[in-house]
Design a protein around this nucleic acid. Structure first.
Lengths: 347, 347
DNA sequence: ACGTGAATTGGAAGCGCTTCCAACAAAGGC
DNA sequence: GCCTTTGTTGGAAGCGCTTCCAATTCACGT
């Protein structure tokens, strides 16, 4: 039983067409009769045929190289799970689809950051780039990259970038709404929100969702206090006292990511406030952080690995699939509230 | 400037040999005169030639599929950084070297866990397997996999597995020694150690290192208390009170991984003990956890991503390189004590 | 000097796929 | 009814590499 994997020729033989035609079907090429297309697909299914990405990329020409661009400074956070998860997903996608990946961390404060991006295209010959926030919100940058003939996918784009290129993300507004809704069900009426840096559009949308849920429950601006952090644990630590001491006395603290929620938790413990009895705290993203704080964090799951993989798939479909010139599309992935131990009935 | 990447034929032409010979040199094949080998290498360098992994794998035959085997139950810890980091490294390696990777989580308690491993070979046709602990300590399993013609690399192997197959890891004993040494320098004389599960060899070696450092400093068994956890945050939380209440009154708590240290930290805070003024706490691994606890954790960096990549490289060298039948070798990667905020002078 | 086997080198096929180009059929336009 | 256009299909080359096999060289033993 030398179960050799079926090749494109096996499919061609079984469906009675030429190899060329099978290739066309597989790549959503034009000029194939529906009847033939169906017959080929049937053979593909019958044989459980999978294209060999190595062979495809060898034959296909081009560099088959994609770039993943982060804004962070690798030195300062070499181990961020956000980055790892996205890269992990992107790598899996590349392996499946026969692409190579280069990951580049280009700090926002680099004077020549745009140039570094263009070098990825000119020198490294990337055929597609994946931008993470806040690069994914930089319409001018995206437009210029596209102008140079390089494809783009934006991760969690917030603004204008969304109309220029394909995007992948979750519905941040709905995520904010869902977690708020849950807290309202638990009887909470006084809220605090710890947001992200100015201009981080996707984090701002989580706040929009929170506000919508509040207003549906008959609550308004006077029932919510807001602060801005920078997504780090540290900023969570620094901002929490201000929230706790506010005359509003919130019973629920909604954070725009898990790291800040973890920071808040550590301050709260220090003050003897009981979580979740006295105060509910929620995170966002569902990174491993949520499992290693005490109590484990109730949060919103963001499918980072899937996002990375989808981003590669979108790039691939632009590059070889039938979507070469299609309208930009946004892939919205499912999120889910993950109930752990930091959200309970209002005191 | 159509800077096409150089191919093997360019190298062959420049060095005045046949393509076949270049291929031999590149793959550490036998039967090439040293003089020719040098000439080819020179051309490689001059052209900055890199083999095209896609082409190589197409031509090379075989499935070019590697498997990464974890013992964990994916359901229970879908987001562990330990797993992500190892997979990330392995994935990078595969992309560079033209291999495919399947990642499989096979819980230790599965009745048919061995069978699941063998299926990876028989059904999926993996040519090489990477075992993580504690599979990497299972000599019988490794021997059987090898017998079936599949290559093996062990991650952090502790015992007999080390002699059967190639291994990748760090010097755990030295890691334990280094962190203990640092604490001793800081004046600590009474220690607590929070270890891992019974039989996890690599974690036990960290304790060995600690003990060696103590004895060099003239300290002995009466200056150290030990407990065993299971590497989870939770177990850190549960075990810490016992350590704090011990009559020895340790001033330094050395943990066998970061998660348990994080658990310890949260208990310590709750009791009003100041870290690091009253108590020093150290972790192990340098996962992102170490940056999101307060104060940030002093720990030992374990190069997990590099380990994943090295594992793939070792497998590759067995599969196509000249090391087909070489003696098993252990790749020991560098570790480093990372000083953050949880270790200070003894009170 | 000649044969022999081992070491070294080159030629050529072919891995599984895409794509250029030619072939052919169907559909209109005059 | 013939020529062009458009749509659909197949033939064949070739991507960059490994590897089988044949050719050549080399070092000895006789």
């Amino acid at each position: 039983m030398t179960a050799r994997r079926p090749t494109i020729d096996d499919v061609a033989r079984l469906s009675g067409v030429a190899r060329t035609t099978v290739s066309r079907v597989l790549n959503d090429g034009p000029n194939v009769r529906d009847e033939v297309r169906a017959r080929v697909m049937e053979a593909v299914k019958a044989l459980d045929y999978k294209v060999n990405p190595q062979a495809r990329s060898l034959a296909g020409g081009g560099s088959r190289l994609l770039g993943l661009v982060f804004a962070s400074d690798l030195e300062s956070e070499p181990n961020s799970f956000y980055h790892s998860a996205l890269e992990l997903g992107a790598l899996r996608g590349c392996l499946e689809l026969g692409y190579q990946l280069v990951t580049r961390h280009i700090p926002l404060q680099s004077a020549d950051r745009e140039q570094q991006v263009y070098d990825l295209i000119a020198t490294q010959r990337c055929e597609g780039l994946i931008f993470t926030p806040p690069y994914s919100d930089d319409a001018a940058l995206i437009a210029e990259v596209l102008r140079r003939g390089c494809r783009v996918v934006s991760i969690s784009p917030g603004g204008a970038g969304r109309d220029l290129a394909d995007g992948v993300g979750m519905d941040d507004e709905a995520g904010g709404y869902d977690i708020a809704r849950r807290l309202i069900e638990l009887g909470h009426r006084r809220f605090a929100f710890m947001g992200g840096i100015e201009g981080h559009l996707s984090a701002d949308r989580r706040l929009d969702g929170l506000i919508r849920a509040l207003s549906e429950a008959g609550l308004g601006a006077s029932d919510l206090i807001k602060v801005r952090g920078d997504f780090t644990f540290r900023s969570g630590v620094e901002l929490t006292p201000r929230l706790l001491d506010d005359p509003l006395h919130p019973t629920a603290l909604v954070c725009a990511n898990d790291d800040m929620a973890a920071g808040a938790l550590s301050v709260v413990h220090g003050r003897g406030v009981k979580v979740p009895q006295d105060l509910s705290v929620t995170g966002f993203d569902d990174t491993p952080v949520s499992a290693i704080v005490w109590p484990p964090l109730t949060t919103v799951h963001q499918p980072l690995k899937d996002m990375g993989r989808r981003a590669v798939a979108l790039l691939a479909s632009r590059l070889t699939g039938g979507r070469a010139e299609a309208e930009p599309e946004f892939n919205c992935l499912d999120h889910a509230v993950v109930e752990r131990g930091t959200a309970a009935s209002a005191p």
